[in-house]
Design a protein around this nucleic acid. Structure first.
Length: 597
DNA sequence: CTTAGGG
DNA sequence: CCCTAAG
């Protein structure tokens, strides 16, 4: 991929091809969004679908969460895009209409090498074509190594980096939204699935509902916006986003639900199998006299690239990182291979035999409470012996048994789905023959009695639906782990977990804002954080605000994970640029709908 | 629903 | 992050 360097760029003029302005009409389209089907979409609907899926056995459970690889990128991969703005004078002339990205780069087709991806990326003439090309581009292994490419494609490089980084700005967690809607914690995460975004409606719905599949990562590990053959990708993304958006249970509504659940929360029977929904409609719940609390969230795509020379400890660390982001700590990660706990942290994956013989499928992770957590959990469960976790003495299964836990959950799904009263005893779900016992019933399992949250992986043959469904079972209806750990915060239980932006997220944000401007957060969201459901456009806007602020203060005053100065510089520049745009009331030109492809 | 801005 | 006015 040989590119002409920015030799002939006419930078002064910022001769931007007439830009990217989404016609108002296009904006208008937004309001055409269907609200219909999703307004009612909440826990029940969601669970029902899950139940359906479980019944059909679609969600075969298997691990495949771990994607082997050789690179172990870290956050120190430094953005190169900063150059973009350093190399060219930032003159007022530059403040013309157009996306900053394009302006800064002066993307004139005629001036870019025919092969310059940027041209394809940014000329935005033919979205489809563009996607094809960029797909090819990204698909080219090691294309990262082409410096010219890097230089030429800020966005692309960034995205690639993010992908490689496994610190995708998207996807650390996906479904806080769902946890907002429902009140029970289920981590579900799904491995690669060559998902077709434009598949049948059901699939789309499912994908949108559960985000089980990370649309950002296709089979080849390419971001979906590079998918080939997706006409109007952006539109589809937009649609997806709409869908997701409409599925969001607004906080207020959520609170409403929660309040309501307080009123009918009597647990029906001690030996009743466990989980009761608090989000059912009042009348429905009256039939059950049960309090069912389902909180669901998922680990969307735990994509981990890790070399065989990595140690067990580092593997744990990686998994831990992701899990902590969601659970807020209080658990630790155990690694199990074929059901046996791998104890020696110093072993490399290779030495542990994980890296060979396709053992990834045999790999499992158990999320175990730390000692303190365990104590708290036990205390909590003894306080409330008939809480979520079953205390049916006849149950052979222990609380720690993921099979049991999963069974419980699937039963709950069934209830909700069939609208029939819950059974008083939880039979095993016939459709779920999960080789789980090996995971937890391992002789070495040392937290069997107090395990509150178990993640396990199963190897199912269905290549198309591999799922990792860790099922956190909480000892206090509806309360999250965090709440358990910190009861004081119960009042704030509904405040979203704080999740600091990672550097890669920041970079993605900067990237997107450079391109789209500061007034189009929704587009920024779609463009750069489409899969990061926990980042709303308001979040992005807020983050930008803090970034601008951060960039304006001395490094000593900054807190949190340090953002590379380079990025902060870009923030300032981009912010200045877009402020200028607004000051002069230059029509902000929204890029064409596929601007972020 | 989005944006913008204060808390 | 939350909340909310305004469009």
């Amino acid at each position: 991929m040989v590119l002409k360097k920015r030799l002939g760029y006419d930078f002064n003029g910022f001769h931007v091809p007439p830009m990217l302005q989404v016609p108002k009409s296009a904006k208008g389209k937004r309001s055409v969004r269907k609200k219909v089907d999703d307004n009612q979409m909440c826990a029940f609907d969601l669970l029902a679908t899950v139940a359906d899926e479980l019944l059909v056995g679609k969600y075969s459970l298997s691990p495949q969460k771990i994607v082997t690889g050789t690179s172990c990128p870290t956050s120190n991969s430094t953005p190169q895009n900063g150059k973009l703005f350093e190399e060219k004078p930032f003159t007022d002339e530059g403040f013309e209409q157009g996306s900053f990205c394009q302006s800064a780069l002066d993307l004139k087709d005629s001036q870019l090498g025919e092969n310059c991806p940027l041209r394809k990326q940014c000329s935005l003439k033919d979205p489809v074509q563009l996607n094809l090309k960029s797909s090819a581009l990204v698909g080219t292994k090691n294309s990262t190594e082409s410096p010219s490419v890097e230089d030429c494609i800020p966005l692309n490089s960034s995205f690639r980096r993010q992908r490689d980084n496994m610190e995708l700005p998207v996807d650390r967690d996906d479904d806080e939204n769902y946890s907002r809607c429902t009140n029970h914690s289920t981590i579900t995460s799904k491995a690669f699935r060559p998902q077709q975004r434009i598949g049948n409606r059901v699939r789309q719905l499912l994908a949108a509902k559960f985000s089980r599949v990370n649309p950002m990562i296709s089979k080849n590990g390419e971001p979906p916006y590079n998918d080939v053959g997706k006409n109007a990708v952006f539109n589809s993304k937009r649609i997806c986003y709409k869908r997701r958006r409409t599925q969001r249970c607004p906080l207020k509504r959520r609170r409403h639900f929660d309040k309501r659940s307080i009123y009918y929360g009597a647990v029906r029977a001690n030996r009743l199998s466990p989980i009761v929904a608090s989000h059912r409609s009042l009348e429905e719940s009256e039939n059950y006299h049960g309090k069912l609390s389902i909180k669901s969230f998922k680990v969307p795509e735990l994509l981990i690239e890790i070399p065989e020379t990595a140690t067990i400890a580092s593997l744990k660390g990686r998994v831990m990182e992701a899990v902590t982001a969601i659970l807020g700590g209080g658990v630790r990660v155990g690694v199990r291979l074929q059901g046996k706990k791998v104890r020696d942290d110093s072993k490399t994956l290779f030495q542990a035999g994980i890296y060979h013989g396709n053992k990834w499928g045999k790999l499992g992770f158990a999320l175990e409470p730390t000692n303190s957590t365990a104590a708290q959990l036990q205390a909590a469960s003894s306080d409330e012996p008939c809480g979520v976790i079953p205390c049916n003495p006849t149950e052979q299964l222990t609380r720690a048994d993921p099979f049991f836990i999963l069974t419980q959950v699937s039963l709950v799904f069934l209830w909700l789905f069939s609208s029939s009263p819950p059974p008083s005893v939880a039979p095993a779900h016939p459709g779920l023959e999960l080789p789980l016992s090996s995971v937890v019933n391992s002789p070495e399992s040392d937290h069997d009695s107090s395990l509150s949250l178990v993640a396990a992986s199963w190897d199912k043959t269905s290549a198309d639906s591999r799922a990792l469904i860790p099922t956190p079972v909480l000892s206090n209806g509806g309360l999250s782990m965090t709440s358990i750990q910190n009861p004081k915060r119960s009042e704030l239980a509904h405040r979203r977990l704080r999740r600091p932006f990672s550097v890669s997220e920041v970079e993605a944000l900067v990237q997107a804002v450079e391109r789209l401007g500061t007034g189009r957060w929704r587009d920024v969201k779609i463009c750069a954080f489409d899969n990061a459901n926990h980042r709303t456009y308001v979040d992005l806007k807020d983050k930008w605000k803090t970034l601008v602020h951060t960039a304006g203060i001395s490094p000593q005053q900054r807190r949190g994970e340090p953002v590379p100065q380079k990025l902060l510089d870009r923030v300032l520049i981009a912010d200045a640029y877009w402020s200028h745009q607004q000051r002069f009331k230059l029509p902000v030109k929204p890029p064409p709908t596929d601007a972020c492809m």
